[in-house]
Amino acid sequence: MSGAGDAVPVLQVRDLQAHFRTHYFGVNREVRAVDGVTFEVNRNEIYGLAGESSSGKTTLVKTIAGLLKPPLEMVGGSARFSFLPGWDAIGRAPPEVVRAIRWRHLSYIMQGSMNVLNPLRRVRYSFRDFAWRHLGGSKVEFDARVVAHMERVKLDPSVLDAYPHELSGGMRQRVTIALATICKPDFIIADEPTTALDVVVQKDVLGMIRAIQCEMGSSILFITHDMGVHAALTDRLGIMYAGRLVEDGETPEIFSRPLHPYTRHLIASLPRIGDTEQREGLDGTPPNLAAPPPGCRFHPRCPLAMPVCTTIVPAMVETLPGHRVACHAVNPGMAT
């Protein structure tokens, strides 16, 4: 098995910009949900994404996966996959190329797991529809393989005969994970895949995700709000705020040495069993991405804000080896 040290990027995202352009009641609105994001995901690693609700995490991964439906547009930058040479983004490749890599090379577990399962068909047929042509074999062989895989995610094979609405949220979530991993893809995007699970099952499923990932040497881009999950599972962690990546680095390092004021808040605000004192949320509300604050987008809520923060966008700088931060207070004198 190849080690973690040979950092081979499978995904290279450069200055990615993706906006929602809408037009309501004669008003044009441009929501800059992803605005200049740069990072890499290596082979054989789990890269975590955390950040406030509506900070653009889902939009970022949709853009990376090429799921660009109007009003979402990729406005600039690139997102290259090593298994798709010659294209600087999936969204720019022709549909037949994209079809050939879905499930086999890239699978996507969407936020709100119902989306992928056909509500009118028993679960078994969702597997046949998506995975059979990639895995091949006879129907009997394929079904046996599905049953074996269901057992790995601790699902009773009878679930295959259920309709999605008959399953609890947690069971649907596990079905979705089974579906996304059965073809052993190189790259898995998972948007809040364990939020509907109880903590016992969640821990099991995370262990399973890690085991499958190790076995296949694949890469996972993993979104969750649960910082405990990031701390346990991910190798590297990126923190998003208002459409931008504000910090990334090795996960243990981010937890032991958070540098960006938003990351520090995020880690300090985690409720723990035993809390009786009020832990306050962040003052103010998430910025409106149709009219984001100038300069550093965090400045209206930042305890360290200085005059420069209101006008100049802080550059993402490698402050420590492998640890990047975008903040004027952390990197004085660095502007974009």
Binding site: G3, N44, E45, K203, G207, Q213, G228, A231, A232
Partner: peptide, 27 residues
């Protein structure tokens, strides 16, 4: 089973990608 940043270490020790590697493999 609750995972917190404080308790995550135990999970990492048994499930980390790095646990599967030989020590010193990292460049």
């Amino acid at each position: 089973a609750v995972l917190t940043p404080d308790s995550a270490g135990a999970f990492r020790a048994t499930h980390s990608r790095k646990a599967a590697e030989t020590p010193g493999a990292r460049s």
